[in-house]
Design a protein around this nucleic acid. Structure first.
Lengths: 232, 232
DNA sequence: CAGCTTATTTATCATATGAAAAATAAGACG
DNA sequence: CGTCTTATTTTTCATATGATAAATAAGCTG
């Protein structure tokens, strides 16, 4: 058999990795893979991307479902920066600035194609961790926004009412949807994310102060005009 | 062979339907099916739900992908009520009321579990019809909101700027996300959808009038307060 | 180098999948 | 009722899938 002179794939040459490295590599690349293919993506194709054979996956994870669970963990957990808790409740600075800084940082953390796709895929599957995360968002972000806003506006302290939380969700969802359009739909969004956040916050805080009937100045420090394009 | 006395499945007894009826029935139920299972749902399970055998599907659709395309059509198309075009641009009534009526009707049309799930599934697949639909939303809804708002606010007529459209998207996405939370995440949302819309519009229109630096009265007729719960 | 552990691969299984071919029977028409 | 059309089912195929068992070889220890 005349072996063709050209590169005949010089044999995969298996290389042993430490189980820890292999495992974490699997999870990280599986997150990439499933984020593109969805969780119905095949283990063989995944293994090809990993540069190993498919059965090796089953030495590290009892089942595909277990691997997926690990992917959830890396995507959902450890994404929250503990400093954000202090930031959102730091009454030494106005809520306008707190929210601007928070949403800039938060969207830096989650506005990736990988994160958003896995978030939506898992949301459609209805997995528990997704519902848990939605609860976290409400508790750690939206309730605080309402409480802190009420405080700054001089309104009486009280548990956020459902209608107030819904308004928080409209803001949050509106910002989130910007990420969906950019990273999932591939729309031609306005590239300046921080400006989109700024405008959204301006409208939200100005609007809510009107709707709630207080004249609190929420734009005391950061004054921007959408479309003027002269703030940077 | 001692046939068991109990109900031995009295034989499916095939029933012929007119091709038109069969076909439309397939598409309608396939939409239900795929909205739950995702487009990776199997044709056999689908056929079971349809009460027919799996190969029959292939008499009506050359391939599974063709069937899915038909599902897209029923979900994406014919969902837009032509009256909405006139409604949104009807300058005989204030924009506040126009938007309230429009979003009540629009969300009545799309806030179903089936629609939202298929919309998200197809968005994740990146199919063309989804991108097309996003363009429709921008052209038929958001651009009009900006134009009509500018008109009512006495601002100069001009093509909506990207930053203005982004603000429209934040409103739209915020309302949309309410539907996602209710119909996909199964969250305990505030059930009064029209009130959520009303509050979102109040905040948006009040806020934008402030941010744009005009004092136009956008709540001249409908005045509601979130959380007061006394407007019904 | 010899010997051992185990990471990795090869081979294989049972089942599920989209799809096609052939067989059957429902129902319309004379 | 007899005949014909065709909607529907039965069989079957080729391939893909998640998962397991056995074989191989990388690389550490002596």
């Amino acid at each position: 058999m005349s072996t063709v002179a050209s590169a005949a794939l010089p044999r995969p040459k298996q290389r042993r990795l430490s189980p820890e490295d292999r495992r974490s590599d699997f999870i990280r690349k599986a997150a990439e893979f499933f984020s593109e293919e969805g969780f119905d993506g095949g283990t063989r194709e995944l293994a090809r991307k990993l540069g190993v054979t498919q059965p090796l996956l089953y030495r590290y994870f009892p089942s595909k479902e277990d691997l997926i669970r690990e992917v959830y963990r890396t995507v959902y957990l450890d994404r929250w920066n503990p400093e954000w808790d202090a930031l959102l409740t730091d009454r030494s600075q106005p809520i306008r600035e707190r929210l601007q800084h928070f949403y800039e940082a938060y969207t830096d953390a989650i506005f990736t194609r990988e994160w958003m796709r896995i978030y939506l895929f898992s949301g459609l599957k209805g997995v528990e961790i997704n519902r848990w995360y939605v609860g976290i968002v409400e508790d750690r972000i939206l309730k605080r926004i309402v409480v802190e806003y009420r405080h700054e506006a001089g309104l009486p302290e009280q548990e956020p009412e459902p209608a107030e939380l819904e308004l928080g969700w409209v803001l949050h969802g509106g910002i989130f949807y910007y990420g969906v359009r950019k990273h999932i739909y591939g729309s031609n969004v306005l590239e300046d994310k921080d400006r989109v956040i700024s405008n959204a916050l301006d409208v939200f805080l100005e609007g809510i102060s009107r709707v709630f009937g207080t004249g609190v100045k929420v734009r005391s420090t950061l004054v921007r005009r959408p479309g003027s394009g002269d703030e940077g």
